[in-house]
């Protein structure tokens, strides 16, 4: 079954950013400027947190607007980036109303969730996790 990452219960999120740090750690970075997931407060910590990550939409707008075919639909859902084809036009970022496509300023390429689940391992409060693609979220 094809997987995607999902916010399982945003009320359990404590805003520790472990998921963000885990994502950049995959590429040997301490920090989160290479991360495909973001957590921020929903306008003040008292209102809780917002978890922003690719939800692997059906018929994804980001793939549709990509002029070079660098972003294409993954079989079963979600998108795959072919970096060689990417010209850094930022159309994909503009097309994602969730704000779930981030930008790598050093490389001038988009940062997209690869649905690998690395971040899930560090979310000890079970706010996020991998789910089967046909299951809601």
């Amino acid at each position: 079954m094809v997987k995607k990452l999902a916010a399982l219960d945003v009320n359990k999120c404590i805003g520790c950013m472990e998921c963000m740090f885990a994502c950049s750690r995959r590429v040997g970075r301490g920090g989160f400027d290479k991360s495909a997931i973001r957590v921020r407060s929903a306008g003040g910590i008292e209102r809780g947190f917002v978890i922003i990550v690719c939800r692997a939409c059906e018929n994804p707008p980001c793939a549709r607007v990509c002029p070079t075919g660098a972003l294409r639909e993954r079989t079963g859902g979600g998108v795959i980036l072919d970096e060689e084809k990417c010209i850094g036009c930022v159309f994909c970022v503009q097309s994602c109303i969730l704000g779930a496509i981030f930008w790598d300023n050093e490389r001038n390429k988009p940062i997209l969730c690869k649905y690998c689940g690395e971040c899930e391992d560090y979310c000890v409060h079970n706010a996020i996790g991998l789910v089967d693609l046909n299951v809601g979220g």
Binding site: I14, G15, C16, M17, H125
Partner: peptide, 11 residues
Amino acid sequence: RRVSCSHCPIG
């Protein structure tokens, strides 16, 4: 609500 500092899983 329970929250944490950045990069601390304790909360």
